[in-house]
Every structure is written in C-alpha cells, then in structure tokens.
Amino acid sequence: MAKEAQSVPGFEPKIIAFLCNWCSYGGADLAGVSRLQYPANTRTIRVMCTATISPHHILKAFQKGADGVLVAGCHIGDCHYIKGNYMTIKRVAVLKELLRFTGFQEERLYLDWISSAEGVRFAEVIRNFTQKVKEMGPSHLRTTY
C-alpha cells in the first residue's frame, strides 16, 4: 500500500500552489515577466487571501494525489485584509503537526510569505520546494486512492 518514500528516477512531482492574489501571485507574475526559470511542476490556484484556504482544501489536494502543497501569502503585516495571514499560519501550524503525528509527511506542506516584489525569491522557493518533494518521492496517497 504505502510506497517507499525515496527518490524515484524520472519522477516529476505534482505540486499545488495556493497563491494569494495580492502578494504571492504578484510575485509569480513578476518572476514570469522577468523570464526567470523555475520548474514547471506547480499548478497554481489563485485565491484572494491565504486565509480563505481551509485545511480541507489542503487535505483534499493531498487526497487527490498532490505530492506537495505550497501555501504562499503576504508577509505578516502586509496582508491586504490586514490580518488574514494570521489565521493562515495558525491553521498550517496545526495541520502540519497533525500530519506529522499521523505519519503523512508534513514536509510535503510548505508555507511561505512572498511579496509581489519578490519575483526572484518566488522562483527560488518553487525551485527548492520542487527539489525537496522530488527527493521525497511520490506521495503515499497517490497509490492508496
């Protein structure tokens, strides 16, 4: 049932990236406009604020076979809705601890703050996270459901 979590040759991970409309999506935009190169493993979902992402969405992404989930929003204090990301960090912290406890490899969930000026950093975050998930191998849930 559970596949060995190790690097599989030729494995290309599927990563769902929840990006907030005001900062991280802007960062992604800037990375694109600046013609920065980064792996094409991410599927972006633009949301108005990371606070709209319920743990349900993250869990459902994993359930549907995502190998990694990235949540990226504005830096603390820069939220377009003042305090939206306060809730995000609390939710992700709880969910990651829960995933760790149940053995579902919490490293597959990653939270970061990326502003719309940080195009270079956006590319770097995607590169690093993709590399990390690639090394971890396919998600266990790919094979169970």
């Binding site: 743990p55 349900h56 869990l59 709880v94 969910l95 829960l98 149940t102 579902f104 169970t144 459901y145």
Partner: peptide, 12 residues
C-alpha cells in the same frame, strides 16, 4: 470514507 481527509478534517 476518504482516508485520511475525513478523519483529519474532523480532527482539525
């Protein structure tokens, strides 16, 4: 039910 979504959602 979808494992682990069902139980982890309730846990959250």
């Amino acid at each position: 039910p979808e494992n682990p979504t069902f139980h982890l959602s309730r846990a959250v």
